[in-house]
Design a protein around this nucleic acid. Structure first.
Length: 259
DNA sequence: ATGACCCCTCTAAGGGGA
C-alpha cells in the first residue's frame, strides 16, 4: 500500500498539479490539507481518477481531506473536545481505508508566541492527542499532515533565524513529543536531495532553490504501521516548476495489503 | 536550471501563511 500527505495550499489553484501528481504517484490513500474550498466546491476530477473523498471544508481557509481508492468508511469531521478560534475550524478529518484509521490534520499556525493563536495551537494539539488515544489503542492508525512544528533544530535550515518564532518553541515540541509518548512513531521521509528531509520552503527569496526549508509536515504511525514501512520519501519534485504548493508531499510505501 | 511570494476575496491603504 502507498499513502501520502500533502498540504496543497488551495486544491483549486493546485488542481492541474494535483491530478498530474495523483496519476504519476498513484497513491492508494492521500491526506490533503489547506484545500481552501467548501465541501460543494471540492473538484470532481479527483473522483474521476478513482478516488473516494472525505472532505471537511470551511471556505476560504483551512480544509482537510482523505482520498482513497481502497475503500473509505467511518468518516469523522473534527474530533471530540476540539477547541475553536473561537468556533471549531476545518482542521481534522479521519476515515478508515484498507483497515487503517487515517487522520489528516492542519494544525493552527500560532502566528507569534505571544498571540492568542499560539495558545489555541497548543490547546488544539493537546485535545487532538486525547481524542486520538482511542484510535491508537483500537488498531493501525496514521496521523499525517501539516503539524506546523519542526520537531528539532535539525528540522529547520537555520535555527538562529527562527528565534522568538513559532514552530520551534519548547512547548510546541513538547506537544509533538506527547504524541510519540502515547505510541506513535515519526515516519521520516527520505530527502531526494540534500541531507535533510524538509517539506516546506517559503515561496519568497528563492528559499527552495537554496534549500532553506523546514520539516513541518509529519507522518505519525502506530507501531504496526511503522514496522511495515518499506520506504518514505519527500517528493521535492512536486515543489519545483510552475505553480507549486509551498509544501512537498511525503509518500510512504507499506508492506501492507492494499485492499 | 528548481530561479527569487502566493493563496483567498470585502480586488486593498487587506488577511493569512510560517
Amino acid at each position: 500500500m502507498r499513502f501520502a500527505t500533502w498540504n496543497v495550499n488551495s486544491v483549486k489553484a493546485r488542481l492541474p498539479r494535483l491530478l498530474e501528481w495523483l496519476r504519476d504517484t498513484a497513491p492508494d490513500v492521500v491526506c490533503l490539507q489547506e484545500t481552501k474550498v467548501p465541501d460543494d466546491a471540492f473538484p470532481a476530477e479527483v473522483a474521476d481518477l478513482g478516488y473516494e473523498t472525505a472532505h471537511y471544508g470551511q471556505g476560504r481557509w483551512n480544509g482537510v481531506a482523505v482520498l482513497s481508492r481502497i475503500g473509505l468508511a467511518g468518516v469523522r469531521r473534527g474530533f471530540p473536545g476540539e477547541p475553536g478560534y473561537p468556533d471549531p475550524e476545518a482542521r481534522a478529518i479521519s476515515a478508515e481505508c484498507g483497515g487503517i484509521r487515517f487522520t489528516s490534520i492542519y494544525v493552527p499556525n500560532g502566528r507569534t508566541p505571544d498571540d492568542p493563536h499560539y495558545t489555541y495551537k497548543l490547546e488544539w494539539l493537546t485535545a487532538l492527542r486525547v481524542a486520538l488515544a482511542a484510535d491508537i489503542a483500537a488498531g493501525p492508525a496514521v496521523l499525517a499532515g501539516d503539524f506546523n512544528v519542526a520537531p528539532t533544530d535539525d528540522d529547520v535550515w537555520d535555527p538562529r533565524v527562527l528565534i522568538r518564532s513559532t514552530h520551534v518553541t519548547p512547548p510546541e515540541r513538547a506537544a509533538l513529543a506527547a504524541f510519540r509518548e502515547v505510541g506513535l512513531t515519526d515516519i521520516v521521509g527520505r530527502p531526494l536531495k540534500g541531507d535533510r528531509p524538509f517539506t516546506y520552503w517559503d515561496y519568497r527569496a528563492g528559499m527552495f532553490h537554496q534549500n532553506q526549508g523546514m520539516r513541518i509536515d509529519l507522518v505519525y504511525g502506530t507501531a504496526d504501521i511503522a514496522a511495515a514501512v518499506k520506504d518514505a520519501v519527500v517528493d521535492r519534485e512536486a515543489r519545483k516548476g510552475k505553480g507549486p504548493s509551498d509544501h512537498a508531499p511525503i509518500v510512504v510505501d507499506l508492506d501492507w495489503p492494499a485492499t
